[in-house]
Design a protein around this nucleic acid. Structure first.
Lengths: 189, 189
DNA sequence: CCATGATAGTCATGAAAGTGACTAGTCTTA
DNA sequence: TAAGACTAGTCACTTTCATGACTATCATGG
């Protein structure tokens, strides 16, 4: 029951099609949840059956027809209930951490390559999140916006995403530096 | 194929029993992966069948017998291969983010309660990670240890865990402050 | 005029993760 | 001296996630 609520939360933004949702939940953009198209379409079907969302067909000329979904009252109630329930603590679960855990026993070059790639990805997302934040707050300062804006939820999750990626970037860079330093030291023996 | 490699990486530390692994993979301690006992025992069985680890029974007097597992050469090779392969980018997938995404439409008090709880949890882990790091590096400074220590993998993942939890704590506190501020402003209307 | 790429989705299947309930002996503490 | 926590693990089951393959149409660029 996790993707389920993420979809409901996304639909708070207004009516969205499955395809639009897939864009919002894309790995490259997602600031609060990630999922693949197939999962989303499946979830939408389930949610509609449960009457937590309602869809309507929109016939289009120039492109395939689509279905726009909106939250029902039952859906909003479900989300409310979910928010009140205790959350399980989260943790990082990342292949890259497993690899670094094994750092002393595996090839450093391969590891450094992975870390560089991840750092690059993190920088790209930092950039993107920066832009998203600026566009959400418009002409206001962050402080102003958070005080008086009327949809701060997405802004706040985006801030977390930004900090997370900054953490990733810094850690990757630091780890690379450490591994390089040790390579040098090792060669000199 | 994720827990699988995490278990292999954990066994780099030396022979461990299933029970010891469950301690290391516990939500309260895990600095690089989390899993439940049942998952671990199941994974250990699979890995042993695949000859990536080997177990030996240890008969004990005062407590139940146990099985100690160690990595085989095949297991180390598998881990090596895994490290060289491309990692998929990671992302946060957290109930709490979903809840904050919906912040504008749900009860703030409930949300603040969740955030406080998470912040407290984060502080506890920060403390724990600090202790773990100190104990790993012994009398050395961090710089010294990372340069010359001979098992820095766990230290590095622990550093990431620490930064992650600091990020959680800061974000939770900031978000709480923002929500409180808005509550005040709302009441005054 | 053909190859991409975007829009808009569907189906089937497998792998991974999570949950609840349960056994069984020992050690500690109120 | 009884209750609860710790050690050590197992069985059965469900939910969630992820993967690959597939169908259409339209627009754009070379």
């Amino acid at each position: 029951m996790a993707l389920r609520h993420a979809v409901l939360a996304a639909l708070l933004e207004g009516e969205l099609s499955g395809y639009q949702l897939t864009k919002a939940f894309d790995l490259g953009v997602a600031n609060f949840w990630y999922a693949q198209p197939q999962q989303l379409y499946a979830e939408l079907t389930r949610l509609e059956k449960g009457r937590l969302i309602a869809g309507r067909e929109v016939i289009q000329e120039a492109r395939p027809n689509k279905r726009l979904f909106r939250l029902t009252d039952a859906g909003l109630a479900e989300l409310e209930e979910f928010t009140a329930a205790a959350a399980k603590p989260s943790f990082i679960r990342d292949d890259l951490l497993v690899k670094v855990q094994a750092a002393d026993h595996v090839d450093s070059e391969a590891l450094i390559a992975q870390l560089s790639e991840r750092a690059a990805f993190a920088r790209a997302k930092i950039d993107l999140f920066g832009k998203m934040l600026r566009s959400m707050r418009g002409d206001h300062t962050e402080e102003e916006f958070l005080r008086h804006g009327h949809r701060i939820g997405p802004y706040l999750t985006c801030l977390r995403g930004l900090a997370f990626e900054e953490g990733n970037r810094d850690w990757c860079e630091h780890t690379i530096a450490v591994l390089r330093e040790r390579q040098k030291a090792h060669v000199q023996h």
